[in-house]
Amino acid sequence: MPVTQKDLMIKPKDALLKGHFACAGCGSALAFRHAIGSVADKAVLVVPASCASVYQGSGKGVAFNVPTINTAFAASDAVASGISRALKRKGKDDLKVIVWGGDGSAADIGIATEIGACDRQENILHVMYSNNVYGNTGGQRSGDTMIGARTATTPKGNTTPRKMVPFILIANNARYVATASAAFLEDFVEKFQKALSLEGFKFIQIDISCPPNWRADSAQSIEISRLGVQTGIWPLFEWDRETNIAVLSRPGKKYGDKANRKPISDWTSLQGRFRGITDKELIALEEDTERQWNFLRKFM
């Protein structure tokens, strides 16, 4: 069932309480608010070292209104596995075990743990919110950083292609894999709910803006995410093991055709991290984007 804005208004309870520590315009907090809110009473969260381990709160309390376990950077999917198994033993397997972490853990340090849980078909959902950078530590390059991005560890521009985490998990026989965007929250929540209805290892990668590390205007947080889809940087799709077919999602469907896409520079020009990007780098970024689409097309 397609999720509408009206559905987003009906929540079991507020999963993210007001007055949290997320930066102004944070796409991750926004995505959290809607996704976890849609399942609040049944959610058990596992949070690896990430911005989410900070913006949840400190000292006197937490903004996360669901049971939350903070774990070491690379440990989250294994901890979630243990929780899922224990809940099964206790006959509480109606609860949804969700890993909520960034690209640092999901694309880099925790990827072996994640593939391990996927390989074992643990009944968990991993949501990788990606700002393509180590945001919490001050904006260093991650395996999901785009070519041309000026980060704290690639001051002259990142040269390496993105690690295509969703495809790695498809190759490892995940139950369900999808991408989403903070600009299309209904689509994200629909995928999130669908994933939770399935048994096995599920994975959603959501593009969220990071105004401080992208050196972007916080007001344009959603616009940048939207342009990510419209320029083809961020394909929106879902893949189901049962069909082994990747389907482009409604909000991003027409951008499967390169002719419908906006120029990538529309997206890069709104972000200070791409200031000074050369034509050569832009071409390389376009090529890397196309590489992603070509991969995706093999499953379409």
């Binding site: 070491a72 596995s81 206790k90 743990t113 593939i115």
Partner: peptide
């Protein structure tokens, strides 16, 4: 739980212990 590393072996036990 037949894990892929010792790091995950203890992590899985931790998840279960938290439960």
């Amino acid at each position: 739980v037949i894990v892929e590393s010792e790091h995950s072996a203890l992590a899985a036990c931790m998840g279960a212990a938290w439960s």
